[in-house]
Write a protein that binds this DNA or RNA. Structure first.
Lengths: 142, 142
DNA sequence: TATTGTTATACTCTATAACTATA
DNA sequence: TATAGTTATAGAGTATAACAATA
């Protein structure tokens, strides 16, 4: 394979992500919880309770984007809102028991995508996993 | 690294794609052309002129999703609409000279993402490229 | 004054359903 | 009748700007 420049790879990555995102939207993991809500549940499960502002920062979105997601999750009783111990402007969002269970189950219910991945070789799966770790570095650093 | 099941990998992939997509939206490649329009230009550049229906199929979206994108691209004179030679229901979309130039330039103007990728090791870049080829197989096969 | 968060508003993207025109 | 495409409508997701409450 010939040399691939960073700019070419960036273009390929941008298109690949758009298309994978479209394919994932057409095959939702769980109809009861939208993609943005799933991401919020995953972040809360991984890092524990946090304020809406910190959740927005970790998700890489602006604070107004998390408000409707949290309102929905609260209505579904998947998260709960506690008062901040010292700052009354803030609140602390934590998973409820149901929310924690759901978040754990969602990873096990990736039916469509998981069946696709099962069709890959072990080598390809390892490549995907390593690429995801690289992508995480790309998106998490400032 | 311990074994990663297909279901776990699927969950990681879904979250990774959502987050990379958010990061890409916050750092657009070209403000004059939206992400969906860029994808359409890239497909036309890669596969040549085609009908709106074929474009939708190649993009993995429903026909109504391409109509507004094509209308915008036509208004911007980046694509042009030709009559189908035998079927008057269809039309053929082709890049204009400007559209072809823009599509070629966009790959060279991936400033934000390309600079991130330049910070990766050669090995990481090769892993990303191989992962993109795997992802293309995941999304293109039925 | 500065910060945290929400509400108001607008835009992008895509889906399903209904419709038009042509085959 | 069947197919290609558009229009109408709706919903998810996110942004900026304006606001309220608290620090």
């Amino acid at each position: 394979m010939p040399e691939t420049t960073a700019a070419e790879l960036a273009g390929l990555l941008r298109l690949g992500v758009l298309r994978l995102n479209r394919a994932l939207r057409a095959n939702p993991a769980d109809a009861a919880v939208t993609a943005a809500a799933r991401a919020a549940l995953a972040t809360l499960a991984q890092h524990g309770p946090m304020s809406p502002g910190e959740l927005a920062r970790r998700e890489g979105v602006r604070p107004p984007a998390v408000s409707p997601v949290l309102a929905t999750l609260e209505r579904q009783q998947l998260v709960r809102r506690l008062p901040h111990p010292t700052d009354r402007r803030q609140s602390i969002i934590e998973l409820t028991g149901t929310g924690a269970e759901l978040s754990a189950e969602i990873r096990a219910r990736e039916a469509w995508l998981a069946s696709r991945i099962r069709g890959l070789s072990d080598r390809d799966r390892r490549t995907l996993l390593r690429a995801l770790q690289i992508v995480e570095r790309l998106t998490s650093s400032p």
